[in-house]
Design a protein around this nucleic acid. Structure first.
Lengths: 140, 140
DNA sequence: TTACCTGCAAACTGTTTGCCGCTGT
DNA sequence: ACAGCGGCAAACAGTTTGCAGGTAA
């Protein structure tokens, strides 16, 4: 079922703005902020309001088309849900971001499930710490 | 070395406000928001400004006396650094919070260290997912 | 036609900052 | 005495909301 039909099935419509948000997410390979998306769209369509972007991200998330991730700040990052799932490492010292295969996180997810009945979404929040470069520097 | 001396060693002073923030953190066993702390202090000391609480949390964090954790919202939660011996699970459905021993997270931390040179602080961000109760309900 | 959706402006929340007089040491 | 510190008010960033007119189906 295409996105138009899925939207329609939920009583929603496909609008120019909604399509632009989807396209922007498609083009941006990784986690982008709502503001990034708004800025990119507004470069060519200045009349589109940031609030529309927020509303559409929320709507598309409800439909399961997009998801968000929390990094080490107050800004929500968005990406297409179908994009390859991965964990995020973010360095609290230099801010560098790195992706790790979701499989690396699976053993922990399994233990949380088995021992606590908790179905963890380990891709939802970035893992904060000190990256290799920064820890080399500080230990020299 | 006591906290007064450590403050002094860093060119800082012990003030009434600083002591109140520390006491509030002591009394609150777990993660509390800056606003929680401000509210509690202001109940008895209404003249103390929330911004003072923020400034003191930051100062005390620099000294290593307190740390903060990110849950699944935009609010920072604080606790005494020495009390930080656990990870946090937070349910995205009902909001329930649960603590898990830090040891549970250690195998992942070790792999990240060995395979990526990344020194992860797995207590810094809560692990988001669906708790046991919510997943039982939704699967019935 | 009729919900849904949008742009606009304004509100809101959590947090930070500038100013300037106060206070710990 | 003199940095550091605190109160106050204002700024700030990211995000949400109310409204009234516009638009997909």
């Amino acid at each position: 079922m295409g996105i138009d039909e899925r939207l329609h099935a939920s009583g929603m419509r496909m609008t120019v703005q909604r399509r632009l948000v989807l396209e922007a997410l498609q083009r941006a390979r990784h986690h982008v902020t709502a503001d990034d998306i708004a800025t990119r769209i507004r470069a060519r369509h200045p009349q589109i309001d940031p609030s529309t972007v927020y509303r559409n991200l929320e709507a598309l998330e409800e439909l399961g088309y997009v998801t968000h991730t929390h990094f080490d700040d107050r800004v929500t990052r968005w990406h297409r849900a179908e994009a390859e799932r991965h964990g995020h490492l973010v360095c609290r010292s230099c801010g560098a971001e790195q992706e790790v295969p979701i499989g690396l996180l699976e053993p922990l997810a399994r233990r949380l499930r088995e021992e606590h009945g908790f179905r963890a979404d380990l891709a939802h929040s970035a893992i904060v710490g000190i990256c290799k470069d920064c820890s080399t520097v500080s230990s020299e």
